[in-house]
Simulated assay, not measured.
Amino acid sequence: MNTLKLRTVFTAAALAASSIAFVGCTTTRPDDNASSASARTSIDAQIDATLSKLYNAVPDSREMVAKSRGVLVFPSVVGGSLGVGAEYGRGALRVGNRTQAYYSTTAGSIGFQAGAHSRAVIYLFTTQEALDKFRNSKGWTAGADASVAAATMGANGRIDTNTMRQPVVGFVLTNLGLEAGVSLQGSKISEVRV
């Protein structure tokens, strides 16, 4: 079998395995109310910790979150790749500091890559129109349904003022702090029952 065919077979197998893994992560039994409540409590606690980390790492972020119409937080988006990459995470939308609904995020990529990572992803909806469009969607994709401005820091160590004016702003946090130059385009976000 030549290299191109082998690569195609490997890519298809990796995508199929990733799809099965993601389906398994989002399937819940209707009679599992106790563990659902526990899962919601766990996600909410992780969101609180993630927002605290954001506030400590990024000056002005607390004020931006407070002024936003809504904040969507994915405390742990886990990804892995070996030629084909996939990411998955669960989080929640908060409006007025109250959880409104739970969501999952998935993304895939193809190209030269290897390894695994975990990061927190936060979306701020700074306008009511952007928040309404997100909430009324049946599956929202960053870049397709709305442009997401990746938060950048200015030379003064503060959030760039141009970033603060965008309808949807994205923050990506790693253990080292704010990750710069990250694209969130193509991330698919869907409401899930937890």
Rank of each mutant, 00 (worst) to 15 (best):
A92E: 02
V148T: 11
A14G: 11
R193K: 14
W140R: 05
A21W: 08
D44C: 03
A39V: 02
M164I: 13
A49K: 12
S183K: 04
M153E: 04
G143Q: 06
A12Q: 12
R40G: 03
R94D: 04
T161Q: 15
A14H: 04
A180L: 14
A151G: 05
E63L: 08
K138D: 13
A155Y: 09
T163C: 15
S42L: 14
V194R: 05
R40S: 08
S104I: 09
G154H: 06
C25G: 13
I20P: 01
A13C: 12
T26G: 09
G85D: 05
D32C: 12
L51G: 03
G143P: 02
R193I: 06
R119F: 09
G79L: 07
A92L: 04
F10C: 13
F112V: 15
Q100M: 13
T41Y: 01
L93H: 09
D132M: 09
L178K: 10
D132H: 07
Q166I: 06
Y55S: 07
T105P: 00
L93S: 03
A114K: 14
T126H: 10
Q100G: 01
A130G: 07
T126P: 00
N2M: 02
T127Q: 06
F134T: 00
I47M: 07
A120T: 12
D32N: 15
P59M: 04
I159K: 06
M164C: 11
I159V: 14
D44P: 02
T174E: 15
S109W: 05
G89L: 03
C25F: 13
P59Q: 06
S109A: 14
S19Y: 08
L51M: 07
R94F: 02
A12G: 08
A45H: 11
Q128D: 13
S81V: 04
G170K: 02
V65W: 01
V58Y: 01
Y102G: 06
D145E: 13
R98Y: 03
D48A: 15
T127G: 05
A66V: 07
S42V: 01
I122F: 06
N175K: 11
G79H: 02
L51R: 03
V73A: 05
A13F: 10
T50I: 05
R90Y: 05
A120C: 13
S190P: 02
S137G: 11
D145P: 06
A16S: 13
P75V: 04
K133R: 14
